[in-house]
């Protein structure tokens, strides 16, 4: 992560830091879901590289003062992937990593869906889908009204885009010319029950966002270098909100979870957890 006064990050170092962070997000997420016997590991893993990139130099935030008025806002609209969000916040210094073990335990601050009044670094209470983008539009508009330079980022799922409130927000963002707003879609092509295209089709998704007045980029959502480069090019066009369609795979990083719809909210057994952690690997010495 980058504070206001820190120098621009070195791209090579940023990618290495993001890779290390992504690995930790994946390990923590699976351990948390396994320990809680609840969660959404498929989406945690598909969004891990996006989160790791955002928190490795893109977001201008200060874990020592999470409420700093001029901070960039990151809103996790896919609140069910709370394990990945908590993991990246803890690894970024918002709260101790040891507390991840409390995930969904009785009276824990780490509820199944994030609560901004309990967890430092959480910007919005999400869980019901289609809430994050309207809130992000409001935050970005607030910066414009005040002439402030901080930016707003929001990560949605792809199935989530079936919620109509997103498209209300999409129209408003274009109308308000919110080029300080960036939507990242975790386009893993799977929703809870099936493929998005076999449920209610989202394609042609890039053309849809474009038609709604957004500047759209498509990127491999697991290519840390490409993600960093794409974020580095913001804003894509003056006067237009930014949409990054990140092509991802649900369960990415664990062969037996990848692109398997059941891992939306399946809990790994002890043996599966061990095998998954082995595949993900540990921090290099």
């Amino acid at each position: 992560m980058q504070t206001h006064d820190s120098p621009p990050p070195d791209p090579g170092a940023t990618v290495a830091a993001a890779a290390r962070l992504a690995r930790r997000i994946r390990r923590h997420s699976l351990q948390m879901v396994s320990s809680a016997r609840l969660g959404h590991p498929g989406g945690d893993l598909s969004s891990a590289d996006i989160l790791a990139t955002l928190y490795s130099g893109v977001l201008r935030i200060n874990p020592r003062n999470p409420a700093e008025a001029g901070r960039d806002r990151f809103i996790m609209s896919k609140g069910h992937c709370s394990a990945a969000l908590y993991a990246v916040l803890a690894e970024s210094g918002f709260f101790p990593v040891e507390r991840l073990g409390e995930y969904m335990k009785p009276l824990s601050m780490l509820n199944g869906h994030p609560d901004r009044n309990k967890v430092r670094g959480v910007e919005a209470n999400t869980g019901p889908l289609g809430h994050g983008l309207p809130i992000a539009v409001g935050a970005a508009k607030a910066a414009k009204v005040q002439g402030a330079s901080w930016r707003t980022f929001v990560l949605t799922g792809d199935g989530e885009l079936q919620e109509g409130s997103n498209w209300e927000a999409a129209m408003a963002a274009a109308q308000f010319r919110l080029d300080n707003l960036t939507l990242i879609v975790d386009r893993n092509r799977l929703q809870q029950g099936d493929e998005t295209e076999r449920t209610v089709s989202l394609e042609p998704l890039a053309a849809r966002w474009s038609a709604f007045g957004w500047a759209v980029r498509e990127v491999d959502g697991h290519d840390l270098r490409a993600l960093a480069r794409t974020f580095g090019e913001l804003p894509f066009e003056p006067g237009r909100p930014n949409c990054i369609l990140a092509r991802t795979h649900k369960g990415r990083g664990v062969s037996f979870m990848e692109d398997r719809v059941e891992w939306h909210h399946k809990v790994p057994t002890e043996a599966e957890l061990a095998a998954a952690l082995l595949e993900i690997g540990e921090d290099p010495q």
Partner: peptide
């Protein structure tokens, strides 16, 4: 500049309200 018309979209309007408050307004 302080009258924000979101169009006929109440869900979005309340969400935008929450975001504006998050942004200090």
């Amino acid at each position: 500049d302080r009258l924000i018309n979101v169009g006929i979209a109440e869900q979005n309007m309340v969400g935008i309200g929450a975001g504006l408050a998050n942004g200090g307004l």
